[in-house]
Design a protein around this nucleic acid. Sequence first.
DNA 1: GATGAATGAGACTTCATTCAT
DNA 2: AATGAATGAAGTCTCATTCAT
Lengths: 193, 193, 193, 193
Amino acid sequence: MRADALRNRVRVLEAAEVVFAAKGVSASTEEIALLAGVGIGTVFRHFPSKEALLEAILLDRVAKLGAMARSLATSLDPGVALYGLFTRMVDQAVTKKTYVDALADAGFVSRIGRSQAGQEAVQALGALLVRAQQAGAVRDDIGVTELIALVVGASRAAEYATGNRAAQARTLQVVFDGLRHPDRSSGSEANDS
Amino acid sequence: MRADALRNRVRVLEAAEVVFAAKGVSASTEEIALLAGVGIGTVFRHFPSKEALLEAILLDRVAKLGAMARSLATSLDPGVALYGLFTRMVDQAVTKKTYVDALADAGFVSRIGRSQAGQEAVQALGALLVRAQQAGAVRDDIGVTELIALVVGASRAAEYATGNRAAQARTLQVVFDGLRHPDRSSGSEANDS
Amino acid sequence: MRADALRNRVRVLEAAEVVFAAKGVSASTEEIALLAGVGIGTVFRHFPSKEALLEAILLDRVAKLGAMARSLATSLDPGVALYGLFTRMVDQAVTKKTYVDALADAGFVSRIGRSQAGQEAVQALGALLVRAQQAGAVRDDIGVTELIALVVGASRAAEYATGNRAAQARTLQVVFDGLRHPDRSSGSEANDS
Amino acid sequence: MRADALRNRVRVLEAAEVVFAAKGVSASTEEIALLAGVGIGTVFRHFPSKEALLEAILLDRVAKLGAMARSLATSLDPGVALYGLFTRMVDQAVTKKTYVDALADAGFVSRIGRSQAGQEAVQALGALLVRAQQAGAVRDDIGVTELIALVVGASRAAEYATGNRAAQARTLQVVFDGLRHPDRSSGSEANDS
DNA sequence: GATGAATGAGACTTCATTCAT
DNA sequence: AATGAATGAAGTCTCATTCAT
């Protein structure tokens, strides 16, 4: 790929990330092109549809998340590693309306889940979760599906409490305490579908 | 207001609730009018804009929530009452795309929060929370703001896990366990802004 | 349907006919709206897509053609009637680029052929053809398919010779003479599919 | 001109012929470049506009047609030669949407008619026609203008009857019979403008 | 000379809102 | 008061053409 093309591709991706984050996925492609400093045609040259652009952004983020999870796979304290990663993911989501909007589309979610980057990320996250459970830092009755659902939910809760950092922190603390809470009922089993 | 006008108002409101719940707030007003069995002009006569219609729906729902919370104010077991209400709210939200969409708009949220119905609902919920805390069913370091944020977040988590009832249940259980049992290490205090 | 709506529908249809005739079917809907004196939205209210508008025009014309053929069904001299109708159809087509363009789309043609108006028109034309053949005015070895193909072709030939009326007349004369020409070879049979 | 440049020019021309034939003149230039195996810039270097490319194709074809007509000028049976050429032209046109589309533009037609290749082709075709008339194979009251119009029209008729070879054959037969045998009643004379 | 990325006008279509009936 | 036809701004996407590499 030519140098200028690559530069523009990155520019568009970054602009889209900013615009989607600020205004949600219903923001116009025109605005993205404007911010990126390119013509509208350039946006569509790199991404054949608005949906493809959105998918590229999310895949990129999922890939980074997967990389982060993998880099933590051998950490000495998997509990600290997992909760730190959880916190970071929530922090990121708060400033990105993108995920809230995009993840609301079930078709989207499953498509990303089936992608290679998505599967690798889930796998890495699952491995980290298992190690944290073995270390006694996370209850045993949940799987990676529940973990991700909790990340999504905690992100949404934090977004709701925008502007009140203390409340955000306490909300996240509740979730973390629930995750640590040993499972005494022992009647339910984790069962990822 | 004439009797038929009032009837139409109610019809529109109900139709809008159904349509928004099914297709999200981006559904067209035309579709709402169709389901309500009135002309599009009638919709706009009763609600000056689509946004006003959405706000009316949410206010209505918040009012009902407030009423429910008030009716539980004197229940013998405030813990059971609060967790039951929490569960019901999450269940509702899962089938109603409306809240997910609408609550994403911060301006909306604060406007509803400032409304009389909103303030009454918050107050009733807060009262129930305090009673549950006094009964030892909920940790002491959270306030009504955190409670609502957790409802919103748990709803989002449940929506994410659509189709996997077991995962939804386990996710909610984590939040409930976190609400019940604070870690001793945590020294933070409730501080609603 | 309301009076004003009907009036606008007719206006749009007439404007579309003019514009398509002048510039071909690739003319813009915007231009049609402009000529009709209505907003672009009105065009799409009456016809949900550009294709639907085009189809409406052609169906209207086919229906008129069918009516003409039926009104000639009992004429005393079916030969004169058929050649007269043939001539009129060619005359119309010359000023209407629409047909040339539209008929080039096979999907379109078959859709119109399957419509009620289309089938009625074909039937009426076929009846007139048979009567003309029985009267000895048209050779026996062709069917309605060949007749229509010849109308289309003669229209195209006339369009090619635009501006040269004498050549148009002689070209049409050749086709007519070929149609009258008795079939001596007698080895081929009409076989409409 | 450099050897590679010439090779590219030919490649583009051939690709354009194929693409236009298959998809009509509204096919994109990008697709042509792709099939030709060159960059889009190369297409525009050789032909300043899409229209110029189309014109080049048609001129090329007209030139070949002229050459064919000239090669038949001295054939022993000019009638057989003319009807054979006519048939071949129709056969070609059926598989080439190009002509149908392109010839619909009057400006195009006259420009090609005024070109050297065009005039030579018309002249050669005219000479063949005259010889066929002298041999008694074609009626006397038509000129080369009518002949070409009939080729165009017969091509269109054949295209309309796509998929029904028998109908195509009978339709062409009608035209040929008309060309051979004038009705005695007709007193019109050939008069090319 | 060749390439293909960039451009932006323009196409079709949707939809919240207005207004004549 | 109710209706629904009319409006037109705005959105996504295509493509002939230009120009930096």
